[in-house]
Write a protein that binds this DNA or RNA. Structure first.
Lengths: 245, 245
DNA sequence: GAGTATACTTGATCAAAATCAAAGGCTGTC
DNA sequence: GACAGCCTTTGATTTTGATCAAGTATACTC
């Protein structure tokens, strides 16, 4: 079914596209969209598909980064830690985001699979060579960096100035608007993060997160099927609870 | 003295450089450093030097952005506001940083002069034309975006997980390491922000900021000459109070 | 199906920072 | 030099969210 929809696209001849890329969800939204078929072939020759289990660490804070990757499926959390163990999640990446910090050898943060994920990983050297010869690729990476910067700054407002209630509502709103890129805002979804992760993303404790979810449920802003599954009857109302209007 | 030091540089012939650029502090660290003399001439023909008073707004949240700028002198604060007036400063920009969010018409944040500042402003259209013809310029802007992203994520850890004490110490450390790009870490400096601004940067109230500064003074971590001037006898000790080790 | 982790929720108490309130200090003007 | 206006500090009290402590639910193992 993916293949069929590919064939309807006019911009690129499918016969030139590497087989693994043809069915790839990330090829249009992701960084690969700017590459010519021959560049795509070059990249795919060195790329490796990988499935990663929830909770497993992909890169550690301070480790060397030898790979870039496109997220094909799932959610990745980026986090930072203080020496005493306090942790803050500084970003979530959803498919089909690009992962990796260009132009630096060492990661300033740790990346961990929040859910089960599929990635398409590329060696650093190949990406850097393609960047040098394809200016469109650097532009695409630049756009991704700016998007992440905007998101980080939005979240700073949440972290610094919102109440616990508004923080939790903001998180639920973020998930509702990002979890399912196909359809617009999902009104029903599975949370990709545990309560502990949500707490680390919001600068709260698990107890406070739990209490605020309960409160939102009692106020009728959300329904909770089980601890992971959430239903939002009125997204506008959730937004107002998130302090966004 | 600036002119003399220019003459010692070998990479570019000064005779080709526009007069206003030759004495410009921002030309080496700033975005202009990647331009050829002729591109620099082109840019400088459309650039305007401006002096802006402390506290005056340069771009408002949601306003159209028609200019980019290099900060020649001073500190600019970038902030976001909730509809009820709560405010969060999401970034500080020091000379010779580049200002402006490429590839978007409307600003998602407001920029205000924290101190008196001098800028060199360029119309959006000129920068975009140069970006298209000089790939080095986009690379430079990309690097600046990545730097700001790293800084934003560092600050998210501060906002989400540090105590008031650590937040204030982190702020003082940030200023000590950024205010004077010439020398390394300044051990004595004027705060570029009022207590109200510091509070908005740290997600605290002015009273809490004031109390924590008093406490750091009583603990001998800093000396305070007047409300703006701060002396740091031991930067390492300040770092430890900031939770960085 | 009992037993055991693990994740989540709920309750009671505590502490850090916010809020409310007042008093200094510094700058500028007349 | 007195007064006004703003910024900053300090004090008293309250509130929010953290911490401490059970208890419940869910999934996984044997």
């Amino acid at each position: 079914m993916q293949i069929v929809s590919e064939h309807s696209r006019k911009d690129i001849h499918n016969s030139d596209i590497p087989f693994v890329c043809a069915a790839c969800e990330a090829r249009h939204g992701g960084v690969c969209s700017t590459l010519t078929p021959s560049q795509l072939t070059e990249l795919s020759r060195h790329s490796t598909r990988r499935r990663i289990d929830p909770g497993s660490e992909m890169v550690g804070q301070g480790e060397a980064t030898n790979n870039y990757a496109n997220i094909i499926r799932g959610v990745v959390k980026l986090s930072k830690m203080l020496s005493d163990g306090r942790q803050q999640i500084v970003g979530l990446q959803f498919a089909p985001d690009f992962m990796g910090r260009p132009f630096t050898r060492e990661s300033a943060l740790s990346a961990e699979a929040a859910t089960g994920i599929d990635i398409c990983a590329f060696p650093r050297a190949v990406v850097e060579r393609l960047v040098a010869e394809a200016p469109g690729l650097e532009h695409r990476l630049h756009e991704q960096a700016l998007k992440e910067l905007d998101e980080a700054r939005d979240w700073m407002l949440t972290l610094g100035r919102k109440t616990a209630q508004e923080k939790v509502a903001s998180f639920l709103y973020l998930i509702a608007t990002h979890i399912d890129p196909e359809h617009g805002n999902a009104t029903e979804f599975d949370l990709p993060l545990s309560r502990a992760d949500i707490a680390d993303y919001l600068g709260l404790t698990i107890e406070t997160v739990s209490r605020q979810i309960t409160k939102l449920r009692k106020d009728g802003v959300i329904r909770v099927e089980n601890s992971r599954r959430v239903i939002v009857p009125d997204v506008g109302r959730l937004m107002r609870f998130a302090g966004m209007d």
